[in-house]
Design a protein around this nucleic acid. Sequence first.
DNA 1: GTTTTTTGTGAGCAATCGTTCAACTACGGA
DNA 2: TCCGTAGTTGAACGATTGCTCACAAAAAAC
Lengths: 203, 203
Amino acid sequence: MGRKQLWDQDEVLASAMRLFRHRGYLGASLRDIEEATGVHPGSLYRTFQSKDGLFRAALDAYNERVVRGRVRAHLLEPADPLAGIRSFFTSAIETGAEPDPGCLLTNTAVESFTLPQTATGVHHGLAAIEGGFADALTRARRCGGTPPDLDVATTAAHLLALYQGLLVLVRAGLPRTTLHGVTDGAMASIGSLRTSRKQDDHE
Amino acid sequence: MGRKQLWDQDEVLASAMRLFRHRGYLGASLRDIEEATGVHPGSLYRTFQSKDGLFRAALDAYNERVVRGRVRAHLLEPADPLAGIRSFFTSAIETGAEPDPGCLLTNTAVESFTLPQTATGVHHGLAAIEGGFADALTRARRCGGTPPDLDVATTAAHLLALYQGLLVLVRAGLPRTTLHGVTDGAMASIGSLRTSRKQDDHE
DNA sequence: GTTTTTTGTGAGCAATCGTTCAACTACGGA
DNA sequence: TCCGTAGTTGAACGATTGCTCACAAAAAAC
């Protein structure tokens, strides 16, 4: 019944994702989006209702494809979990041919403080990364790659913060040697967080 | 000669700083800026030439007052450098009465990838923080608070990344217990980076 | 073939954007 | 006191924003 949709929704979301990742939500106008996706705004509005709706769909697609894909490839599947954690960090530095560095998740967490509608999407993505770290750390501890009394949950949060910080520094354009130093620090710091914490004097 | 300026430039920059910090560069219109500062756009343009000029002045003021002030208070002056590093992290979590969390430096590093004019301002601020960490670490090493062969430069970059990541997670609205866990991880990870690195297998 | 239903699109809506400027106001120097 | 200079301001500039809709096009239903 009715006419067939001429554009592929996955391709459009991929293009929109790339544009939002590069310019941010406010920095990408609907004329930009039309040029990037090749789809008329009227058609986009029929499917996504609003610019916010398109952005949320792009963020969800980013979580689904990019974030969870990277988590799976580097943190869940590799036989050597510690090497996987290291490659998870270095792959964020070596963006390769992609001319626009940065992570849509990080950028959105920072930019759309004004847009509460995107908070859950950001939380989902961050939780996926943190969960991936926790999984890899648990496996590493089981194989003796870390101290047996490693505090997995706290270390996973620690690595999540370190990873988000690395993405900020990547976007700031810091030299690559500094960024690799951060990766080295991340790997070296694993194992320093035990369940019996000595300094628990906050608040 | 001529009329006296009715507004105080420091106060205006403080108001603009707060607004940009909350809404970002693109999210703060000149009508918003007029309302926040109480100064007519025409007057602002006479002094700052453009919205970019005002933003750069606000970013410089942020570096000068907020960033360097915090670095001095937490990293350079305290007698106990490690306690200072901890308070530097926790003070970023406990924003207190301030309703809008986040750091203008972090936000700008992420948002204004499009605006190359702000890159140097961001670099200056990040270098000030990194330098503060390096100073505190050097003093801690001298007093025996860290291993004598601590790699100060790499650890400072490590803490800088961790701090920027913490600010991202603060802005993402993660629970305070998680954020304090990140601080614990930061403190625990100090000392794990030695000058004779075992794992130096990147690139 | 006609109708029904869905999708594409050119044109343009009101609103807002960053920016400018002529008219006006206030102060210092003569 | 009057003039030159510098700061303020209301109004509006053209451009762009997110968004809408009447109409054309195409596929399914009859």
